[in-house]
Design a protein around this nucleic acid. Structure first.
Lengths: 221, 221
DNA sequence: TCAAAAGTGTTCCGAATACACCCATGA
DNA sequence: TCATGGGTGTATTCGGAACACTTTTGA
């Protein structure tokens, strides 16, 4: 799609892919190879095809750009201001996505120059393509909201994890400290965790129990 | 727009206009004059124009169909499944709208045959055009959510109202009884209400104080 | 034996809920 | 004087927040 027809509408899906890396909340950014905003970073995404559902398009684009399947997606509100894309009239339906950073090694699938994990904290300084900064802002709000409402953080964790790791994820997303005892109490009340006999030992201290999610019960949210 | 180009995308805005009438939650429905779904009821709405923002389009359509300006609108999630409109690929961005039924006298602006207030309770029986039943379902959930979160009910009330009238609105929207004392306590805590010296007298009982909203503080939600 | 993270219960506070009677009016 | 809806306060319950010490390990 070299040139857009100025008289048509186009539908884009963009993904705000959050992960946690090095104890920071990160999101996937792609350096644009073409105009407009060539060289600027943007959310991964692309155009919806004529016979493709919105969510399918988002999945396809993400799979093309990251190689990862079965990413958790949540539809966001459409962004459709007239001037948001200089090429023409493009309505974007962004999706909030969560992934365990271990599953997506950027250098494995993409030129490191072209894809990077951007730190959410330093975003205000970056200049992003289109209205993607606004989309990210809304996505971050939605992420925090959903975390509190539906414990969405499970989507960002590896298969097995310790309770402290889970708590770190919550703290990083919410950007505030949580009390260890209250956190564990609340998490256990959900009865979503399966305890494993294995433990994780690192460093000179008591080993931590490993947990995973009971997928069945988690799917029913 | 007689025929849709099968290769293009079209953007529609539909409005789920709720009001309270005869102690029931109602929503505005329009009988379709053309195919597809000719004769069936549908949400009011129409296509977004090339140089028009989404919300402006929703406002314009609503004003055209109801004659009412300054309706409260809240953007919903896009509905974009491939087969949802038999004419072509149409993505709908629905808006939740609230209005005081007194402001919109249907027969005054529309052929009574063509526009009606549909009862939310009896919706499941009705056959509606497109995927509008799904849209309404989501709108109703959003309405209830927003009512609890942001006291959105203010948008559905007339300029001046009694506390009992306000409570009825909450009860009708949430479809459950509320305790009078608790309700008043909570509402007053918002300090959004302005008390007037006038009272409303109807029937053989103590007259009720009239209230209105402090618009300034309400706008800051 | 020390450092470092894992693990574990109880108290406190505030918000939401439950609940019952008197008031002002017109008929 | 009675029927009708308007108007008001307190006790209880429940969930969220605050808070400190013991356990297990490797160095």
């Amino acid at each position: 799609m070299a040139e857009l027809d100025k008289n048509q509408f186009y539908i884009a899906v963009d993904a705000v892919v959050f992960t946690i890396l090095h104890n920071q909340l990160k999101l996937l950014l792609i350096k644009r190879k073409n105009e407009p905003f060539k060289g600027k970073f943007a959310l991964p995404g692309g155009f919806v095809e004529r016979d493709e559902n919105l969510e399918d398009a988002a999945k396809r684009e993400l799979e093309e750009e990251t190689g990862v399947k079965n990413i958790f997606l949540k539809k966001m509100h459409a962004f459709g201001d007239v001037g948001r894309d200089p090429r023409g009239r493009v309505i974007s339906i962004p999706f909030l996505a969560l992934i365990d950073a271990e599953e997506l090694k950027l250098h494995a699938t993409d030129d490191a120059e072209l894809a990077k994990w951007g730190s959410v904290d330093s975003l205000p300084k970056h200049e992003l393509a289109f209205d993607h900064k606004e989309i990210i802002k809304e996505a971050l709000g939605l992420l925090r909201f959903e975390l509190k409402e539906t414990n969405i953080a499970f989507e960002i964790m590896p298969k097995r994890f310790t309770l402290t790791e889970l708590q770190r994820a919550y703290e990083i997303i919410l950007d505030k400290q949580l009390d260890k005892r209250n956190f564990r109490k609340q998490i256990f009340e959900l009865s979503l965790l399966k305890e494993h006999s294995e433990t994780k030992m690192e460093g000179a201290h008591r080993p931590a129990k490993l947990f995973s999610f009971k997928e069945k019960q988690y799917k029913m949210l």
